[in-house]
Design a protein around this nucleic acid. Structure first.
Length: 311
DNA sequence: AATTTCTACAACCGCTTGCTT
DNA sequence: AAAGCAAGCGGTTGTAGAAAT
């Protein structure tokens, strides 16, 4: 169904907001809340469309916004989150209090992307550029492993094909073809599993440790799925897990598989930190760098690349 | 000093999603 | 089930100011 662009009728103002307009919108929402956005401009005395008002409020006027430059910690977190979530800016923003998706997207496109490229890291796959080039045609790779696919099926296809990359990677590692020798000596057995299922050596900016926090758990209610040679059986949350308060962060719940379940499971030592938000998206979150742990390749190999809801 | 190019970021556009009727 | 609407989302464009020429 074809829709008209906002403000198609009348001569509503477009473009940059004046301080007077900001003041009107701020005053109105502070007193009354926004309610239905389409009625806000009229009630606030603005010649704008509701959509424009909403955007202005969300991205600029909201009192809880953190203004100013991004700290290096924030930038590192964005890179880590992007490695897991791809261009899901709103989900990334949800993990950075006071920052908007628009702001993060702009930062990514104007700054972080270039920094990564400069360091030889592909900003889409988060793998070293040269390594990606060697193994696959990079332009093809960008199309096939971007985060745009939306179905489980697409995700499975990617994971299945990328699962085999682990063997190649492992071989490469055993031949001491290190991606970064200095880092190698510091964090010898840490790896990233990218969301597309590929494996790369962890480096500080993109570190997503493979502690089971990286496992994408099947949504409750899914039965099972066979991914090529790996059969993933539904982990039943209620009966197969036990929940305790997380050791280092009492605000989070730590879920562990029961011993009984572990004995039959493909997962090596599945533990992950669950928050409400993570649970909703069915994406387990990377642990912070300090909590990263070593994982032996044999454990990595045993990990099932699992499946998520709509990715 | 004037002009052009670059950069950062604000805002827009159109599609999708979810809810209601 | 279909239509309509509001809100959310991410890609793209526009623009002001800075930097380069």
């Amino acid at each position: 169904m074809k829709r008209h662009s906002c403000g198609y009728k009348q001569n509503l103002r477009k473009g940059l907001w004046s301080p007077e307009e900001d003041e009107k919108l701020l005053n109105y929402i502070t007193k009354n809340g926004h309610g239905c956005w389409s009625s806000v401009p009229k009630l606030a005395g603005l010649e704008r469309c509701g959509k424009s008002c909403r955007l202005r409020w969300i991205n600029y006027l909201r009192p809880d916004l953190k203004r100013g430059a991004f700290s290096s910690e924030e930038q590192n977190l964005i890179v880590e989150l992007h490695a897991v979530l791809g261009n899901r800016w709103s989900q990334i923003a949800a993990r950075l209090p006071g920052r908007t998706d628009n702001e993060i997207k702009n930062l990514w496109n104007s700054c972080i992307k270039k920094k990564l490229m400069k360091k030889g890291i592909d900003p889409i796959t988060h793998q070293p550029l040269s390594e990606v080039d060697k193994e696959t045609n990079i332009s093809d790779n960008h199309n096939s492993t971007s985060f745009s696919s939306k179905t489980n099926q697409d995700f499975f296809v990617k994971q299945t094909s990328d699962f085999s990359k682990y063997s190649a990677f492992q071989k490469q590692e055993s031949n001491s073809v290190s991606l970064d020798n200095s880092l190698s000596s510091m964090i010898p057995t840490q790896f990233n599993i990218n969301i597309d299922g590929s494996v790369s050596k962890a480096r500080f900016e993109t570190q997503v440790c493979v502690k089971p926090s990286i496992i994408l758990l099947p949504p409750p209610g899914n039965t099972s799925s066979t991914i090529d040679h790996v059969k993933v059986t539904e982990p039943n949350w209620e009966t197969n897990c036990r929940t305790t308060s997380h050791r280092d962060n009492p605000g989070l719940e730590e879920m562990k598989w029961s011993d009984e379940y572990l004995n039959e499971s493909l997962f090596s030592s599945p533990v992950y930190v669950k928050s409400e938000m993570d649970f909703n998206s069915n994406i387990a979150f990377p642990w912070s760098q300090s909590q990263a742990c070593d994982v032996f390749p044999k454990d990595l190999q045993r990990m099932a690349f699992s499946f998520g809801q709509t990715l």
